[in-house]
Amino acid sequence: MSASDTPFERAGDPYLVGRTRDWVSTGAGRGYVHATGHGEGGPASKRVIVGYGFWIFLLSDIVMFSAFFAAHAVLQTATAGGPSGRELFNWWSIVAQTAFLLVSSFTCGLSAVATEARHHLWTQVALLVTGLFGLAFLVLEGRDFANMVMQGAGPDRSAFLSSLFAVVGLHGLHVSAGLLWLGTMMAQVFVKGFRPDILLALFTVVYLIGLGR
């Protein structure tokens, strides 16, 4: 059996792994007959490749964050007579920030579900809620930064505070970039409708949390 005598009757990506359920279970041509003659599965589908690329990007982000974290871990005790974390941190603000990020990654997931179902309104609503919680997080973080600087505990006070401002500030930038991306996506969905390659961009904001504390 050759792949050429089974035309692609369905629209969409013919290279999608296991696109059809026509599993040939014996012989050298084992696999899916629609796989265009490239071994078992043919080239990976666009969806898999886009997901992989995005995942590599997230991992590179994690590696970059880990460098900042390492610096912070090394300098944690280097307070130079200045205030330590325990004296500075505003407990409830941190709880609220963490909660906001968690909720926003949850609603981001919901927007992915709505996207799968091709439901415009719910996608937009979920993305909007995601964005609002992200924004609320940034406001709280900015307020904390301002308070610390006013107390004389700015990044110039000690090596501990320098590293703290660096890692938390970087995370804030990361969230801001995610918000910009999210806004762009909402506009794209609004103007162009859904395109498959938009889907995976959704996960950007999701990643924010684990590093939030």
Partner: peptide, 16 residues
């Protein structure tokens, strides 16, 4: 890719 990322992160943090 995740496994490789974890390796790099572990080397970086533990090494530092």
């Amino acid at each position: 890719a995740l496994a490789f990322g974890v390796l790099i992160v572990a080397l970086l943090i533990a090494g530092s």
